[in-house]
């Protein structure tokens, strides 16, 4: 029977307070028994390289589902707020994709850029779930704010449940 692989990717910035929360989530998930069909990966690098990594997966190791955990500022959310949604697969105009590629190859790492570029190059599976955490602290350092630290446990549970649901349904 073909495997149904799930990628849980962490996207953020190391040692940048709340922007590092995705790595903490990944660390905790690595200690949970998620089974052999779940791959935990830091995807916080050049989105073009992320695309090339996904393209390089052998046919029997392609991901059927991707879950991306990231802290990102969105208007109107309280610090520590958690939002989950299915990515709408909308790719912007060619001019904006081109700008996204420029930013990607010159060092900008961001959730939106990664989704736009991976979407444009068609390397994402049908199911892409985003888990966002609203950050409060943006300074250098390894301490999460109290708000984001409090949210982390629920994010870990949320992602574990998502993965579990998937494996039950598969």
């Amino acid at each position: 029977m073909a495997r149904s692989l799930t990628l849980v990717g962490a996207l953020g910035y190391r040692n940048l307070r709340d922007h590092s929360v995705a790595f903490e989530v990944l660390e905790r998930l690595s200690k949970a028994d998620l089974g052999p069909d779940v791959v935990l990966e830091d995807v916080s690098y050049n989105p073009i390289a992320v695309v090339q990594w996904l393209q390089a997966q052998p046919p029997d190791q392609q991901f059927q589902r991707v879950i991306v955990v990231s802290s990102i500022e969105r208007a109107g959310r309280a610090p520590g707020a958690v939002s989950t949604y299915e990515w709408d697969r909308v790719v912007p105009s060619d001019a904006l994709v081109q700008q996204a590629v420029t930013e990607a190859v010159t060092g900008i790492i961001s959730l939106d850029n990664t989704l736009v570029i991976a979407g444009y190059f068609g390397v994402l599976p049908a199911s892409v779930t985003i888990v966002e955490i609203e950050p409060l602290e943006h300074e250098f350092g390894d301490q999460l704010s109290a708000e984001v630290a409090r949210a982390m446990a629920s994010v870990v549970t949320l992602v574990r449940d998502m993965v579990h649901e998937r494996s039950l349904g598969a």
């Binding site: 910035y13 010159t106 060092g107 900008i108 790492i109 961001s110 943006h138 300074e139």
Partner: peptide
């Protein structure tokens, strides 16, 4: 031009990532 090498990225509100 490589402006990240020329100039950077800190404001009173924190580090500018984008």
């Amino acid at each position: 031009p490589c402006m990240p090498c020329t100039t950077h990225i800190h404001s009173d509100a924190g580090v500018i990532t984008r």
